[in-house]
Amino acid sequence: MRILVLLKLVIDPEIPQSKFKIDFENKNQVVDDNPIVISTYDENALEVALKLKDKHNFEVNVFSITPYDYQQPIKKALAMGADKAFVLKIPNSFIDSINLARLIYDYIKQEDYNLILTGYESADWGHRSIPPVISSLLDYKLITYSYSVEYEQNNWIIRKLIGNGFVVLKTNKNLVVSITTHQENQPRYPKVKDIMMASKKPIVVNEVNPNFESNLIIEKIEQPTIKKECQFIDGKDAHEKAQKLYNKLKELKLV
């Protein structure tokens, strides 16, 4: 079986507030010298793929379509255990999910992957649309918001989170699964030996200057200020402070 993991590269969401800047004219986040990382849930998706590789020796490739410097995050993915990486460089501007998925589709449709994994939501736009749209274009089956995929007797077995638990789903068709975080898919730390080995693994880089008719246009972006007036509770000890807080919450009917 052949597995492809779609990795979105994003400006590190963990940077301090002072480093988070929006270019309001171009309606995008300013890169500056901030680190570029793999979007969180995509790392969980890679871990799910690597668990399948550990057990069945399936091929695991990664694919990233990005305007950013891909070197560090892609090398990390290879060091974690991916076999081969494909990078498609694009200009830094907003592309709607259908047109972005079409660019990915053009590069992967000939490859006959059996399973495509990716995070259920990206840390930047957070639209959750790429997994459904890519499965729709490929005519693959689709299961979102899952945390594990196994392979047993020619079937994919998928565990998907629902309101108060999870469901177990089974199919023998090619499919796209989007992954959320769970204690079972926490990304592994590459060992020094793996990091050395990764430098020998292939990264195939292409560039595209897409020409398309947008399905969805970003008109503007706002960054609201959310500061509140904080009232500090004084008291001689923990008991008095707790009592004051309790009374206040009671008064506001919050408890």
């Binding site: 988070f20 947008s214 969805l216 246009i217 970003i218």
Partner: peptide
């Protein structure tokens, strides 16, 4: 967007 740090305004074109 950006995990709630911003609000984005989108115009459907299709």
């Amino acid at each position: 967007s950006f995990g709630g740090k911003c609000i984005s305004y989108f115009k459907p074109a299709k």
